[in-house]
Design a protein around this nucleic acid. Sequence first.
RNA 1: GCGCCCGUAGCUCAGUUGGAUAGAGCGUCUGCCUUCUAAGCAGAUGGUCGGGGGUUCGAUUCCCUCCGGGCGCGCCA
Length: 662
Amino acid sequence: MYLILANRLREALTRHVAETYNLSVEISLEKPPKIEMGELASPFCFDLAKRLKRAPRHIAQEIATSLAAIPGIARIEVAGAGYLNAFFDRTVFWDSVGSESFAAPPAPSGGKIIVEHTNINPNKAAHIGHLRNAILGDTFVRLLRHSGRRVETQNYIDNTGVQVADVVVGFLHIEKRTAPNIRALSQEPRFDYYCWDLYAKVTQFYEEDKTRLALRGETMQRIEEGIGEAAEVAETVADAVVGCHLRTMARLDIRYDLLPRESEILRLKFWDAAFVKLKETGAIHLASAGKNAGCWVMPWTQGEGATPAATVAAEAPAPEDADAQAKVIVRSNGTVTYVGKDIAYQLWKFGLLGRDFHYAAYPSPSGEIIWMTTSSAGDPHPPAFGGAELVYNVIDARQAYLQQVVSAGLRALGHNSEADRSIHFSYEIVALSPRCAREMGYELSPEDAKKPYVEVSGRKGLGVKADDLLDRLEAATLAEVHQRHPLMPPAEQRATAHAIAVSAIRFFLLKFTRTATIAFDFEDALSFEGETGPYCQYAVVRIRGIRRKGAEAATGGAGQVSKEFLSGIFSGAEGQGLWELLLLTGSLDSAVDAAIGAQEPAFVAKYAFQLAQSFNNFYHKHHILSEEDPQKRSFLLQITERVEAQLVRALSLLGMEAPEKM
RNA sequence: GCGCCCGUAGCUCAGUUGGAUAGAGCGUCUGCCUUCUAAGCAGAUGGUCGGGGGUUCGAUUCCCUCCGGGCGCGCCA
């Protein structure tokens, strides 16, 4: 509701200024520092003052008196040196929040948005860093869908890459297992944990003798060609680990529409199609000299961002130098790099490749149907995948350069508009606090010990596994629930503990903005007090407690609240605090809008916390069920209902569920 | 060397396109459970917004510069 009023005010002011002064201005709106100053304020008269060469306060005065009435806004006042402050009509707002809180979300419409996230190499268990990616992506998808956008979630599976190859080397050359044996092993529930350890062993295996790296090359080649034991084992391992990842993510209520696999990018000749286009347009060329001789390269200069090939060519000092700086797309042995495949994939996402995958539906480990790409015939009538008008790639900040290369690839092919609509949803990594790294049994080098945090490393086997963290959280929450509610049925205890654990971890990873590097520490992550998910859930649980008790005591019925009562209480002594709570309750739309605009789910996490905090404050000031005045009791009850509806909605956008009791 | 990110209270972080007296959580200290759940509330403590210039009516926010930290620049992904 807040957003609606803000937009209404902005439009009215823009129109008024255009008509009165024949000027077009950008109306910036902000929240005044104090609620006594109104709910919305604009300093745009300061800008206007310059252009009109008049005092800002006089202009503000003039506008305030001549502006036509705006529905939902009671009055507009001049404040300070020339601010315009708007005051909402509180009884109108009350009604609007009531209908808004219980309205159904809009049906999806408009062009498709693809959000790609998770993308964990299927060769080891998911760790805390992967969780940040998946939770950010999943939450962003929820926000987009909530605001009526049509969204397709994709989790790209690099099942033919070097990381899978390394684990295959481990199985075949260190452990000397056979394909059937590995297949049997892959059925174990935590096969991903086994691979985690094996992957670290492979790293050592190479370090002991560098010539062993030849095994990696051979294995990769076999996997890419899709023939022999290595390819068979790679498929077994990748499929099984993907299953583990899907189970892990399902624990956090994270799901996908499609799993596009790299094997299909290769076998369905996606790359060949992209290669032809890139060659035809001159976007890439064969380097004839220098260190990249024999490779197909894309010209590149670091600095000006994604620089189109043409501009680079004009400024390049010498062809050899330029080629040495260029990004290799096809290696001299003819194999394509990851970026090359990514360009093809990105073209497909926009429907620009002229090819499509085959698709097959599988029951996912958590039960529902999930679509996966396949090289064989596939389903005759799959849903229409791809063909998006906007693409968000959720990838950590270290890969910014590669994302720019992909974008430059699209530009070089003349798809400027699609390049603009290829958005790198970037975020900083989750590292471990030095204390946490030690706790994980990792010996810190003197340099590492001095650092503020230690980077997670799959290769070294250093990291906090997602399932371990969840297990620990669930154990802690279950113990607490058990103690508080000994009579609760065990199944409900477990469900409650699970909901609290999920909210703890999701909120913990969402409360930081994307540019903050998170130094992970068990103490912070296992905290359930203060700015945490459980704190937000607790506010809802309190409201539900009131409703239960109210129903038992037959005092819960929320009767009519008259307009006179509303305007009376909001203008009375205790009205300010009540109004602030209502205002915040009606501001979810504004928080979601800002979160989508800034690609910052943290805004919604912050909102949920503030609303919970504001409610807790209200809860202590007003004892609802013992309120003698029936009209006031109804009013207080209806506030809590509105808060509950909006807070539950905010939490569900964050992927969190509020239990009945906790 | 080039590029990106960060520097705000003891610690961890917010601060929405430049706006009114810079906020929250944790920590420390003091109160509050016979009451709708204390996973809570109230209060106290705590700041040269890394330093210095500049633009502006106005800068934590924009520009320059310096200092300190992280990351990226592979025929790895």
